[in-house]
Amino acid sequence: MYTQALDIPQQNTEAKGPRTIENPAYQAEFDAKIDAGGYIEAKDWMPESYRKTLVRQISQHAHSEIVGMLPEGNWITRAPTLKRKAILLAKVQDEGGHGLYLYAAAETLGVSRDELLDALHSGRAKYSSIFNYPTLTWADIGVVGWLVDGAAIMNQIPLCKCSYGPYARAMVRICKEESFHQRQGYDLLLTMMKGTQEQRDMVQDAVNRWWWPSIMMFGPHDKDSTHSAQSARWGIKRISNDDLRQKFVDATVEQAKVLGVTMPDPELKWNEARGHYDFGAIDWDEFWNVVNGHGQGNVDRLAARVKAWDDGAWVREAALEYARKHDARDSQAA
């Protein structure tokens, strides 16, 4: 999902933070809390590996929301109507908001916002591979809402009950807003499907390009997912990659029928015995290629992100300077 890069070998994205002292009594208390389905809060004792895993996961998730603004933001000026432009602006603003909720949740674990951003900008931290694909036509905006946000929702709903309180609460807020994203995308596509043959072809073409990347968002198969077992033990991951992927496929194939498009997978068919849709083999070479930075958009996305940060530097500095000046004046007056 947005944190699929958890499955690549640990890189040194860890910033400084409070070091927890290993303590068997605290560990037993922590385990009991997890087993009882309780929540761990920011100031509670936690094993260092739990803290590190959460910093990686929450920050990758946050980076994905922020970088996710780019492929859609790219269409704001070209939206076909004022209504669609207003909707897209609201959606992109939401993605920014989601990134901010998540950075704040990560910061409760003892890393600073600047350290997290620096890890993204320097390429040490990852974000979801899905945002390295280009949005070529207006239909892509609809398909991103329907499939990409649809896949994200599937993954994020179980996170609302994850064991780390600040992350769980951020996810509750995000899930409430995300439903609008998926529905506006589907609504956009329905409108195009009622248009000309050219528009219908455009929708089908976008589905053809986004289908496989969308189901790759759920990450490697369970047997290849190195962090899954530990994350399940910690109550960070409640449902496995393959189970979520299957749930997503089953739901979207039905939605595709209503829309009048087909998925680009000749092996996709209903399996009566399993009660699920079977689907073809996923091209994991492509997946890892994109996760590891060789997708169509990796270089552009990161460059756009860094440019936005650098171009805004003078604003951040000026605002701080203004605050300092007023602090000084206030303390003189006091």
Binding site: Y101, E107, R316, A319, L320, Y322, A323, H326
Partner: peptide, 10 residues
């Protein structure tokens, strides 16, 4: 939740 800002107004 929380936000980062340089002063109270912002």
């Amino acid at each position: 939740g929380s936000v980062h800002a340089p002063d109270a107004k912002l």
